[in-house]
Amino acid sequence: MSEQLIGAKSEVLFHFSIKLSDGSAADSTKVHNKPAKLFMGDGSLTENFEKCLLGLKAGDEKSFELEPEDAFGQPNPDNIYYVDRSKFGAETPAQVGSIIAFTQPDGTDLPGLIREVAGDSVTVDFNHPLAGQKVTFEVEILEVNN
């Protein structure tokens, strides 16, 4: 049986770690031993990220660096909102550095990072926390299905 290589439509089960330019780990599936599942070409990852995975097979490990545009994008000023402090309560105080889930009109939660608290105005950033950062991905391919 020939080994299956990751192609344009593969289903891939893999572990990954994301490291920041200072070497600190931002995220890793190994912490909870819950590998990620990816369907190549479904749009959940950038084209350049997927290109880094093409041709890998189960058992392969690879590390690659991605520019912000290929990872989590650049911060979008439209994703920064000013929220009235009265919307925060004792359970979710407005504290700089806190990440709070805000419920969207469709019922899904969107995490926002509190950047600033000035008087009654709270600045909430809904950009991905890693937006604008160069990151290193380390992947370990567990399974490939074509």
Rank of each mutant, 00 (worst) to 15 (best):
M1Q: 10
L5H: 03
A8E: 08
K9F: 00
L13C: 03
L20I: 00
S24V: 07
A25T: 13
D27C: 05
D27A: 12
V31E: 15
V31M: 12
A36P: 06
G41W: 13
D42L: 14
L45A: 13
T46Q: 13
T46E: 12
N48C: 07
E50P: 10
E50N: 05
K51E: 11
C52H: 11
C52G: 12
C52K: 13
L54M: 12
K57A: 10
A58S: 14
A58N: 04
D60C: 10
K62F: 06
E67R: 00
Q74N: 08
P75N: 03
P75S: 07
P77F: 05
P77S: 09
P77A: 09
I80N: 00
Y82F: 09
F88C: 02
F88L: 02
A94S: 04
S98A: 11
A101L: 12
T103H: 01
Q104M: 11
P105W: 05
G107H: 07
G107S: 08
T108W: 02
E116K: 15
V117Q: 03
V117K: 04
A118Q: 09
T123V: 12
N127M: 04
H128M: 10
P129Y: 13
A131N: 10
Q133I: 02
Q133W: 01
V135A: 13
V135Y: 10
V135L: 13
T136E: 14
E138F: 06
E138V: 09
E140W: 08
E143N: 11
